[in-house]
Design a binder for these strands. Structure first.
Lengths: 243, 243
DNA sequence: CGCCATTATTGACGTTTCGTCATTTTCAGC
DNA sequence: GCTGAAAATGACGAAACGTCAATAATGGCG
C-alpha cells in the first residue's frame, strides 16, 4: 500500500502548521513555553504525531532556523546580483540583513538560540548538516562580492588576508550587532539612538578601511539601499514595517 | 541569635563551590545537563540549600555571566589605562577580549546563552540589573577611548555619529566574531585559517576606516598587543594557553 | 463491498526535572 | 542542658520529556 497524494499533502501541510505554531509561541513566549504537547493540542493532534515530524523542540527550532538561513541566502543572492559595482552590491546585501532580521524575527531568534552548541546538537543530524550548508552558502556569497571587488581593483586586501577573512569580519559586525540588538540591551540609553542606522554607518566605515571604492564619502549608499529595498525586497519591506 | 562569622563564611564558600561546579558542568555538558539536583549531589548538600542561593539555573548562569562581565570590565579598565595613544589603547583592549574569551570560556558561554531574553529574564531581577550595569561599564570604557581619540584629533567621526555609536560597532564586530567562533561553525573550512588573527585584522580595518591615527600601516599594533599581553594580563595568558 | 496489509495516530506510561514548603536539624546564647 | 532563630532537608505535586504497544485509518484487490 502506498501513501496517496492526498495524505502526503496533509502530512506536509501539518508540518507547516507545526512550524507556524512553534514560531509564534517561541517568538512571543520563549524557549521554555515551547513544548511538544502544547503544539499538539493547539493544532489538534496528539503528541506522538508531532514527534513523528520532529524529534524534539530543538529540532523544530533548527528547521525554523534553516528556513531562515535559506531565506537569507536567497536574499543575499538577489543582493549580490544587483546591477552595480561590488561595493554597491555589498551595501545592498547589508540592507538585506536588516530586512531579514526585521521581517522574520522568529527565524532570526531561532538562529540565535541555536548558537549554543549543546542545544544545536539535539536536533536531527540531517537538519544540522543542512543548516551548515546554508550558512556556508551565505558567507560564500559575501566572499564572492569581495572577490569581485578585488578583481576590479576597487579594493586591496591587506597582506595575508583572504576574501573569506574580510567576509568573516563583515559578517561578524552585522551579525553581532543584530544579535546585541535582539536582546533587551538598552542601546538607546547607551547613546546609540538609531541602532540600525548605526550598523550601516559602521559597515561603511569598515569598507572604507580597506579603501574599497567608491568610498562612502564619494557615493550615497543610503539612497542606493533605499532604492534597492523597494525594487528587490518589496515583501520584506512590508513585513518589516508591520512588525 | 546571630549568624556566626564561621557560619557566614561557610555559606559564602558554598556559593563559590556551587558556581565552580555549575561552570564546569555547563561548559563540558551544556545547558540541559546543568540542573540543581546534580549540583546539590555533587557538593553534598540538598536541593533546597542550592535553591537558597539561586532561584534556578538561569540565575546561576547569570551570576557566572556577571562575574565574567565584571572581569572583562576590569580588563578593559587596565587596557584603557595603557600608556600610549588612544588607538594603541584600543588595540590592547581588543586583545583583552580575545584573552578573556579564551581564559574564561565558561563565563563567555554563560553570557552567550543569556543573550536569549526569555532565559535571561528567569534570573533574579537584582542579578539582571547588576549584569546590565557591568555591560554598560564595558561599552563606556570603549566609548571613552574613542572620545580621547577625537579630543586629540587622531580621528574624526563621520557626521552625525557619536562616540558610543562607533563603540557599538567595534563591540559588535568582536562580540559577533567571538560568538560565531564559539559555536562549531567550521570557520577553517570556510577559508578563515586563523580566526583570532582575522578578528584583529578586521578590527584594524575598521579603525583605519575612520582614519584613526596612527593607521595600521604606520604602527605595528600586533607587537604592541603581544607586549601588553605579557605585562598586563599575565594570568589570563597562562590560563588561555592552558585551555 | 469487504478484507487485508500497511501506515498513521493515539495517549498512557515511566522518567526526569522543577520549585515549594512543612518538618527536622543545627547551633549561639543563656 | 534548654531555647528559639536560622539553616537544611527531602518528600511532594506539577510539568515536560520521549517511547511504544495498541488502535484507527486507508488504499489495493478480489
Amino acid at each position: 500500500m502506498n501513501r496517496s497524494p492526498k495524505k502526503q499533502n496533509e502530512i506536509e501541510e501539518r508540518e507547516t502548521t507545526i512550524l507556524d505554531v512553534a514560531a509564534r509561541v517561541f517568538l512571543s513566549d520563549g524557549y521554555h513555553s515551547l513544548n511538544m504537547e502544547n503544539i499538539a493540542d493547539e493544532i489538534g493532534c496528539s503528541k506522538g504525531t508531532v514527534y513523528g515530524h520532529f524529534r524534539n523542540k530543538e529540532d523544530i527550532l533548527m528547521e525554523l532556523a534553516s528556513r531562515g538561513v535559506e531565506k537569507r541566502a536567497e536574499m543575499f543572492s538577489q543582493a549580490a546580483a544587483f546591477a552595480g559595482r561590488p561595493r554597491e552590491r555589498m551595501a545592498v546585501l547589508w540592507m538585506s540583513i536588516e530586512l531579514y532580521v526585521r521581517a522574520y524575527p522568529e527565524y532570526f531568534a531561532s538562529e540565535l538560540i541555536l548558537r549554543t552548541e549543546t542545544l544545536r546538537e539535539k536536533a536531527a543530524p540531517e537538519r544540522q548538516e543542512f543548516m551548515r550548508g546554508c550558512e556556508n552558502r551565505c558567507i560564500q556569497i559575501v566572499a564572492g562580492i569581495v572577490r569581485d571587488g578585488v578583481a576590479l581593483r576597487d579594493l586591496h586586501l591587506p597582506d595575508g588576508m583572504s576574501d573569506e577573512e574580510l567576509a568573516f569580519g563583515v559578517w561578524s559586525l552585522t551579525y553581532g550587532a543584530h544579535g546585541l540588538l535582539q536582546t533587551g540591551t538598552p542601546m538607546k540609553s547607551m547613546g546609540v539612538k538609531n541602532p540600525f542606522q548605526s550598523i550601516l554607518y559602521n559597515a561603511n566605515i569598515m569598507l572604507d578601511g580597506v579603501g574599497w571604492k567608491p568610498l562612502s564619502t564619494e557615493l550615497d549608499y543610503q539612497s542606493i539601499q533605499k532604492q534597492a529595498a523597494k525594487t528587490l525586497f518589496e515583501d520584506e519591506v512590508k513585513l518589516a514595517d508591520r512588525r
